[in-house]
Design a protein around this nucleic acid. Structure first.
Lengths: 337, 337
DNA sequence: CGGCTGAATCGAATCGATTCGACAACTGTC
DNA sequence: GACAGTTGTCGAATCGATTCGATTCAGCCG
């Protein structure tokens, strides 16, 4: 015990935490600490005693690469980090759902779920028992989990209305993954029925308010490559069979679709209207101004961070829902003659 | 104490950790746990006792957004995560350098510095005292810190040689930030002298092996916007004054430069040769095949993860240096006539 | 000079597990 | 039937701080 060195026992604690202590004693303690190569209290012991670690868990369900390649998710993480400041660390936890992951054995005071599905029900249950405050960004609604989200459904519907008002009848969609299975394929009733990803489902349902039969392709992730593949699949048909408008559930997907269209010799929006979702500033999309929904991603993260802070402080905290804005760019136009 | 419930004291521990215990007793303990709404041992206490938390600290110096918008850094993080698996969490710590950050008070068993500068000397000192194993990816070399890196200098030199062999005499560079000050500006001897970012400096020096006087612009970060701005600055001069080749220190910067060139009506590589560094798959760079250095970013992360595992296990671990590969694409060509 | 106040310091309890050594009961073996 | 060898349980010590209440001592007031 470093304390034996100087003189006292518990006084050392005061010296380090800045309690009421005489300058002389403090100096003596510090000197002894230097002597003994001791650098401040052990975080483990401290956190045990205080019941606080200053760590916030951030739970994602996919691999790190996939999660944060999506600009919206990354922005949200940045928002969280901004709001919590340097005072606390972000513990990144990858949870695939089944196995006993670190969620159950890691040290943290509060948890933020990023776009998580009901697969984590068990983990959530455990954390509830431990009475760890929880916040979910764009996640499934759960009892006792604060929700931070946007008006996915309504925003998506407004996008679909725009497309409808331009006169489009043959419309298809490219959705984000609906389940934890990351595989590209057609949108089928079974898949929709089994959907666990709230965001994708909400956006799909929003669009279906306008186009009840809306079908298309489920992408395996939010990347322009996926969008490209989906775009090719949707647009390869004959001119009178292929969709005249494609509603993509993310900007990255939309960019891919546009690229697919152009590689097939189709003009956007002359031959195909393409709309996205997110309002991300996409590298390399300089020749188009994407029609999309702009959502405040960083703000979502901030709100989540604030919610966590509030919850930990005991301040009452509430669900937050942001309103996103329709941005009409140059990738949407009337039905080709 | 949940233990009082069932029957024993320390036996409960065995029940949860799977020690030698009779099935009957185990069941009794579990039943009591359920009764009491107790879900496994408290991570804080456990980590205090065991001296292990299963958490690896990942230290970055910039904000989350800036750090991980760089595909290489993100890939490295993904590599780390892959290698460590679900067993352990990644504690993301943002350290600006001066203030007493979480580094000193957070719970973790090992630390990985991602591209960190000597600003963190004090933090490193503290962790050394605590005997927390440390690994640095592309960071300044430090006593007691394992290094994982690539042959920045040599790779950069080989790129410069390529450019020289194509006949270019007027060459400029766009470097990554040299110091923690994120501000765009010309490359000056003072700045280079004060450089703290090893990667940038190594790459610059590599290029200067071929072009000793090489000057240019220091970007404020690794983004195509920065590249664009730098490109504009470098290429706006008269035809016989402007560089015929630009060596960018990252692919994102290179993409920006290319875009700047094209916006000025210059062809790549007809009027300007542009080379990058990283080998990132850049969204939206479909019409060019960038000449660049391909580096194994994910592998770097993996190696760092492995190093951490080894260090924690007591296995001997060594510095790792990867070799990167020159990729000659279509953005480099002979000097315009 | 007694009594009171406030600051500085210390002891002991506590946080919630893990772990080691001791002990008891049980299994085989000769 | 005794003894060695397992197994399963339990008590107590330990991990390294924080924290509460008590104590000491100096200074101050009446």
């Amino acid at each position: 015990m470093a304390k034996l060195a100087g003189v006292s026992g518990s006084t050392a604690s005061l010296a380090f935490s800045g309690g009421s202590i005489s300058p002389a004693t403090r100096e003596r303690v510090m000197a002894a600490a230097r002597e003994l190569n001791y650098s401040g209290p052990d975080p483990r012991a401290r956190s045990l005693r205080q019941g606080r670690s200053g760590i916030v868990g951030v739970i994602i369900e996919d691999r790190v690469l996939n999660s944060f390649r999506d600009p919206m998710t990354l922005a949200a993480l940045d928002g969280i980090s901004q709001e919590l400041g340097e005072g606390s660390g972000l513990l990144l936890l990858t949870a695939t759902g089944d196995g006993e992951s670190t969620i159950q054995s890691a040290v943290f005071d509060a948890a933020i779920f990023m776009g998580c599905s009901p697969h984590l029900a068990r983990s959530i249950e455990i954390m509830r028992q431990r009475s760890v405050p929880m916040v979910a960004i764009e996640g499934q609604a759960f009892e006792g989990v604060l929700a931070v989200s946007i008006d996915n459904r309504e925003a998506s519907a407004s996008l679909a209305r725009l497309v409808r008002d331009l006169g489009h009848r043959r419309v298809a969609t490219v959705t984000l993954p609906l389940t934890s299975v990351r595989e590209r394929g057609p949108v089928t009733p079974e898949l929709v029925g089994a959907a666990t990803t709230a965001v994708s489902l909400d956006r799909l349902e929003g669009a279906r308010e306008v186009y009840p039969e809306l079908g298309g392709i489920v992408a395996a992730g939010s990347s322009s490559d996926e969008g490209f593949a989906a775009g090719l699949a949707l647009l390869s048909g004959a001119a009178d069979a292929r969709p005249t408008a494609i509603i993509a559930q993310s900007d990255l997907l939309a960019v891919g679709v546009i690229r697919a269209a152009e590689s097939l010799g189709l003009g956007v929006p002359a031959d195909v209207t393409v709309v996205g979702f997110d309002g991300a500033r996409i590298e390399g999309l300089t020749d188009h101004d994407l029609t999309t929904i702009r959502q405040p991603a960083t703000e979502k993260g901030r709100a989540a961070g604030r919610a966590v802070t509030d919850l930990l402080a005991g301040t009452p905290a509430f669900d937050v829902s942001f309103t996103s804005v329709l941005h009409v760019g140059s990738t949407s136009g009337p039905v080709p003659a």
